[in-house]
């Protein structure tokens, strides 16, 4: 490769990387500079550094004076973990059946999981709103857990099925001859062998719940039942523009999920190409 071509390629890549990083850096800058609004400056380096926004976000309190931020973090963590657990349990069992067993309705079921991804959330949302309203579950996390895990299931089923398909059948046959039951084959052979795919689908379910905004915004109205996305949106909602607090909150919320994402991203790629995208 010629020298100029190399420089040109690096130039392109640096340009795009800068474009990618710049908005994020501005948010980070905002989170450590005082004031509610952005500065009229393009430099990503803050002129003055303060951690006020962070302490304000973390130290926020509800009407009764109890710490609000940690309450909301707890909401989000519980919500996301519950969603992941429920989603993983439901998805892995059915993906196993879809991958390994032949039964009438198999194709219909697989297709259903594909088509369900096309349901617009609003179509589900209105009935759910009505149903939850009637059940008096509007302001609770239970409803959201159920909704989130079912949103995550179709993707998880397809990804896991794609991965299960790559595990040689002979391994299970060997286990069968060795004396394993169907459940032991699933639990002691297939599940341990699918750890990468399970990690990816778990990440996906977790991200679904951790990042979901609109259903939470619609269904939750009490401050103490908010999730992190709703809290963040309220900083820059129609009536307020507290960009400083938003930025600090955004950094706090993004760090755990981005860390998870980067730990698992290698698998994410293979997981996606193995099953999810093939559809």
């Amino acid at each position: 490769m010629s020298r100029w071509k190399t420089i040109l390629i690096h130039g392109f890549l640096i340009f795009f990387t800068a474009m990618t990083l710049y908005p994020v850096l501005l948010v980070v800058r905002k989170s450590v500079t005082p004031g509610d609004n952005f500065e009229r400056s393009l430099s990503p380096i803050p002129s003055r550094v303060t951690l006020d926004h962070y302490s304000e976000v973390i130290g926020s309190r509800d009407f009764n004076g109890r710490p609000l931020f940690w309450r909301i973090v707890l909401n989000s963590v519980v919500l996301s973990l519950a969603t992941t657990l429920v989603g993983m349990f439901l998805a892995s069992t059915s993906a196993y059946a879809f991958s390994r067993l032949r039964f009438p309705g198999r194709r219909m079921g697989l297709m259903m999981f594909l088509v369900v991804q096309m349901f617009p959330a609003t179509l589900i949302m209105i009935p759910l709103y009505v149903i939850l309203d009637k059940l008096g579950l509007l302001d609770s996390l239970v409803g959201l857990v159920l909704v989130y895990s079912t949103t995550a299931i179709p993707f998880c089923v397809w990804t896991l099925k794609g991965y299960f398909d790559t595990i040689p059948r002979e391994i299970e046959e060997a286990a069968w001859i060795d004396g394993a039951t169907r459940f032991q084959m699933f639990w002691r052979i297939v599940i341990p062998l699918s750890r990468p795919a399970l990690a990816v689908t778990a990440l996906f379910s977790f991200m679904t719940a951790w990042n979901e905004y609109i259903l939470a915004e619609t269904f939750l109205s009490r401050e103490t039942s908010y999730t992190l996305p709703v809290m963040l949106q309220h900083y820059v909602g129609t009536h307020s523009t507290q960009w400083g607090k938003f930025a600090a909150g955004a950094v706090l919320v993004s760090i755990p999920v981005m860390a998870l994402f980067y730990i698992l991203q290698k698998h994410l790629v293979s997981g996606l190409t193995a099953g999810g995208v093939k559809g």
Binding site: E170, I171, E173, A174, W176, I177, D178, P192
Partner: peptide
């Protein structure tokens, strides 16, 4: 009779060892 109750053992072409 299920495979596990037939009292047989099998060696597979690709060995089918449990990788984990």
């Amino acid at each position: 009779v299920l495979p596990r109750d037939r009292d047989i053992a099998m060696v597979f072409q690709n060995y089918a060892l449990y990788p984990h």
